[in-house]
Simulated assay, not measured.
Amino acid sequence: MREIGAFEAKTHLSELLAAAEAGESVLITRRGTPVARLVPAGSDRSAVLDRLAALRSRIAARNVRLSAEDILSARDEGRR
């Protein structure tokens, strides 16, 4: 994934859009800190759905029952 600063991204937006159309993802940073990701339209949704289906399969294979508290805790841990 290419990384680019916010000012440069603003300056070269049309080039970045062409890269996204070609399937490339671009991480946009501000002073070295990631703030946004430019990805091809629709790619994030299908990737997330695939990962969710894989997770469901792994959980079902283990025959594990998760409580709402367990799920929220795991979600919150991912935000750290």
Rank of each mutant, 00 (worst) to 15 (best):
R2S: 05
R2H: 03
E3H: 08
E3P: 02
E3T: 15
I4T: 02
I4R: 06
G5F: 00
F7V: 09
K10S: 13
H12A: 05
L13K: 02
L13S: 02
L13W: 14
S14I: 10
S14K: 13
E15S: 07
E15T: 15
E15A: 06
L16R: 07
A18P: 07
A20I: 01
S25W: 12
L27T: 10
G32T: 00
T33P: 03
T33V: 08
R37I: 06
R37N: 03
L38N: 05
V39Y: 09
P40R: 04
A41N: 08
S43T: 12
D44N: 02
S46N: 05
V48E: 07
L49I: 08
D50E: 13
R51V: 00
L52P: 08
A53H: 11
A53K: 13
L55H: 06
R56G: 08
R56S: 08
R58Q: 14
A60V: 11
A60D: 15
A61R: 09
N63M: 06
V64T: 15
R65G: 10
S67H: 06
A68C: 13
E69V: 06
E69S: 10
E69A: 15
D70A: 14
D70I: 03
I71F: 12
L72S: 06
L72H: 11
S73Y: 09
R75A: 14
R75D: 08
D76M: 09
G78A: 02
